[in-house]
Design a protein around this nucleic acid. Structure first.
Length: 770
DNA sequence: GCGGATCAC
DNA sequence: TATGGTGATCCGC
């Protein structure tokens, strides 16, 4: 598909528009999907459960909440209390409803609506719970409806139309009428009923969206928050109207990174996403641009898929700097212990253990190792994780590994069949009379006992508790500096020594299992009673060694460079690079000054890289330059916001090419034209001349790339790693090896914050026609 | 399969 | 200025 596009169609957008027509034909508006979203869930629960808090603001998601040790207890407590109540209500409307986390759910009420048509009023009548119904609730009932004529209705409050009852059923007035409400048979009424019942039962309000698919329903539920609902009628035009001015950031799946990238292309709203479909098909992977296309057409899932099985489980912790191997190993063990407990609760065993580290510069690294035999206990996980950690500690030696986050993840879970098979083979092995104390292969009681014993012993005081205590002691006898100095010294002494120390803890001699071990594969007695050595032996017996231990080794084989990358000296490098770029830069421009914080972050550059990146990836040597020129220049590369093209959104699909071309550059009179590629201001006011210049700039890079020159136009040097959604590859643009290596050290968090600042620059695409 | 990155909640 | 935790997915390699 992509190839087809590149070979010609995409230049004119025909390939994409053909797809648009197909997608239009497959548009399914026959389902009624509802998205329910509890308002300020955690804060609301907190308030409900603690009336005293009602007067005080509660910061949801703040550290005070997230970092407290009772966070999980609270979370799961909430789940038990609320989701059961909610759940009952939702099940009535859709037995197959799909919960999303604790405070959201999707329902497909299509069938319910059909059945409901025949329901008598009594079946749709609900009573106010006098305790939980506030005066405001009752007032809301009397509020008048606010329905638009265009099939798009919205209601800021739960009961907004004059739902009958107050006077319609005088016979029930005594008891029921004043205290009950009958809901109608429409989708809106169903959702009002759901929200009413939720509030009556839980005292928590919910917002809801009603639409023909899940994507629209979710976006829609956001429209009248809190305590409101919104509907997109099942008509194509209603869908498109809803999307027209909707910021892409509102779309589920489009986060801040994608938003920024699209913004650099002048795309802010969903209709602009549609207008730029041809360009997007060139810049992004097929999966990505198809997704964009779906979004811009308002297409989404019309059925609720069952929750898939869990793919991984992890635990991670953030802390102030930890830089001694001792502390790191002990923290690692603690994480393994926590994870093991959670894994065993769900009866899961996985083959891949991933260690996650975030250094003090906020760079995140993950290191994974897959083993043959699935792991689930603290010891098993730690055996793998500590090796990964050891490798990382060694890789920065003799410097200390300075981290602020560590996480352990287990994935690659055994399927049910695999588990049965494993169980079976273990049982048959045990029946064969060979006794083994080998943890990895021995299920059942002794294994469990071992785990429990060990974890109990070591969990009495958590890592943090111990550290706190130690700090207190230390602070009495040592100055902070001395303490740090000692830790660093300890660390430098040798991480290998420490590995040995931790091994001792791991050793089976400390456990209650047998001291002589027989390998279950070769049946030879093993001299060592060290768990790890035994594991290794068995693995060797089975298949040689552990499958893989992934220490990333740079292609040039220079491990040291890689090590350095993990702790880049941001400031200095940036300064150096900035100065270098300054020198290299085209005369008359001063990008460093304009993006004062980070000369490597600039939307324009990113954009150039994206284009070149994509083209690079899909090498089409014959007509690349033309293709890039035609697509980028003719398909409203830098559209003027609110151009007339906006107005015929979706109206003239067949004639898109002409409209696209006609919406080309429409610069404001007083604009200074700045080339988005080389970033230099252009003296000309003629768009033709300007276009020609941009063209040359674009092609310069392409030509050079195609001729496989090592050096790239100077501007591309300061492109950051391409953060691209679902496809644009990273760093490929940096063909200069030294630049490439340097770049790889930049972190996302770092560049994101810098990017935010650099977006103030005038020399960016989004500012181009502002 | 690994590692980096993005996203949702 | 100080920057959380968990799970999923995508993509290049």
């Amino acid at each position: 598909m992509e190839r087809d596009c590149l070979s010609g169609n995409v230049v004119t957008g025909q390939g994409v528009d053909k797809l648009v027509i197909e997608l239009e034909q497959s548009r399914n508006l026959s389902n009624t999907i509802v998205h329910i979203d509890m308002d300020a869930f955690y804060a609301a629960v907190e308030m409900r459960d603690n009336r005293e808090l009602k007067e005080k603001p509660v910061a949801v998601g703040s550290m005070s909440m997230l970092s407290t040790s009772n966070y999980h207890a609270r979370r799961f407590g909430v789940q038990q209390k609320v989701s059961k109540e909610v759940r009952e209500i939702l099940t009535e409307c859709d037995p197959n409803f799909m919960p999303m986390g604790l405070d959201e759910a999707y329902l497909n009420i299509t069938e319910h609506l059909e059945e409901r048509l025949n329901w008598p009023e009594d079946k749709r009548r609900f009573f106010f719970n006098s305790e939980s119904t506030t005066e405001k609730d009752k007032d809301d009932i009397n509020m008048s409806a606010k329905f638009n004529e265009d099939g798009y209705s919205s209601s800021p409050v739960l009961f907004e139309d004059n739902t009958p009852l107050m006077d319609d059923h005088p016979e029930r007035r005594d008891q029921s009428v004043e205290n009950s409400i009958i809901f109608g048979t429409s989708a809106e009424e169903v959702v009002k009923e759901i929200r009413f019942r939720i509030e009556q039962k839980t005292q928590l309000t919910a917002s809801a969206g009603i639409a023909p698919n899940t994507m629209l329903a979710k976006m829609c539920s956001d429209c009248n928050k809190p305590n409101g609902q919104c509907r997109i009628a099942p008509e194509r035009q209603a869908v498109l109207d809803f999307l027209k001015d909707l910021p892409i950031r509102k779309v589920p799946g489009i986060g801040k990174v994608t938003e920024k990238m699209l913004k650099a292309l002048g795309i802010v709203t969903c209709s602009e996403l549609y207008q730029q479909r041809a360009l997007l098909s060139l810049l992004f992977s097929e999966a990505s641009w198809r997704n964009f296309l779906d979004i811009s057409l308002g297409l989404g899932s019309t059925h609720l898929e069952k929750d898939g099985e869990r793919k991984s489980m992890s635990t991670e912790r953030t802390f102030s700097e930890i830089n001694t191997a001792e502390d790191q190993y002990s923290l690692c063990r603690e994480l393994c212990r926590d994870l093991a407990q959670e894994l065993q609760k769900e009866g899961l065993k996985g083959k891949t253990v991933t260690l996650k580290l975030k250094n003090v510069n906020f760079e995140v690294k993950t290191r994974a190792s897959t083993v043959l035999s699935a792991v689930s206990t603290e010891e098993e996980i730690f055996a793998v994780a500590k090796d990964l950690l050891g490798t990382e500690i060694d890789s920065v030696g003799p410097h200390p590994l300075r981290i602020r986050l560590m996480g352990v993840r287990v994935s690659g879970f055994l399927s049910e069949e695999e588990r049965k098979y494993q169980q079976k083979s273990i049982m048959s092995f045990l029946k064969s009379g060979k006794e083994t104390g080998f943890l990895r292969l021995q299920p059942g009681k002794s294994n469990q006992e071992y785990f429990t014993k060990n974890s109990e012993a070591s969990s009495r005081g958590s890592f943090f508790d111990k550290k706190r205590a130690a700090r207190q002691l230390n602070s009495e006898s040592l100055s902070p500096n001395e303490t740090v100095g000692e830790q660093v010294f300890h660390d430098r002494k040798s991480s290998a020594n420490f590995v040995e120390e931790t091994k001792k803890v791991t050793d089976l001699e400390n456990s209650n299992v047998h001291k002589i071990f027989t390998c279950p594969v070769c049946f030879e007695e093993q001299r060592s009673n060290n768990l790890e050595e035994l594991n290794r032996h068995i693995d060797d017996c089975l298949n040689g060694t552990l499958v893989k231990d992934t220490m990333e080794i740079p292609k040039n084989g220079n491990l040291r460079e890689n090590t350095i990358n993990f702790f880049p000296k941001f400031k200095n490098e940036n300064v150096d690079e900035c100065q270098k770029n300054k020198k290299d830069h085209l005369a008359g421009t001063d990008q460093c000054a304009s993006t004062s914080d980070n000369c490597s972050s600039n939307s324009t550059e990113k954009f150039t890289q994206i284009i070149s990146d994509k083209l690079h990836r899909e090498r089409q040597p014959s007509n690349l330059s033309d293709l890039a020129r035609n697509v980028c220049m003719k398909q409203c590369l830098f559209p003027k916001r609110g151009s007339q093209d906006n107005e015929d959104y979706f109206e003239k699909t067949e004639h898109r090419e002409e409209t696209s071309s006609s919406c080309l550059f429409e610069a404001k009179e007083d604009s200074v034209l700045v080339c988005p590629v080389c970033n230099s201001e252009q003296k000309t006011t003629s768009l033709v001349s300007f276009n020609r210049h941009v063209d040359v700039c674009l092609n310069r890079g392409l030509i050079q790339e195609l001729t496989e020159k090592k050096d790239y136009p100077t501007q591309t040097y300061h492109m950051e790693n391409s953060n691209r959604v679902g496809g644009l590859s990273r760093g490929q643009q940096c063909t200069n090896p030294s630049q490439g290596t340097k770049r790889s050290g930049l972190t996302t968090s770092q560049s994101v914050s810098k990017k935010a600042k650099s977006s103030n620059s005038k020399h960016t695409i989004e500012m181009f026609f502002k």
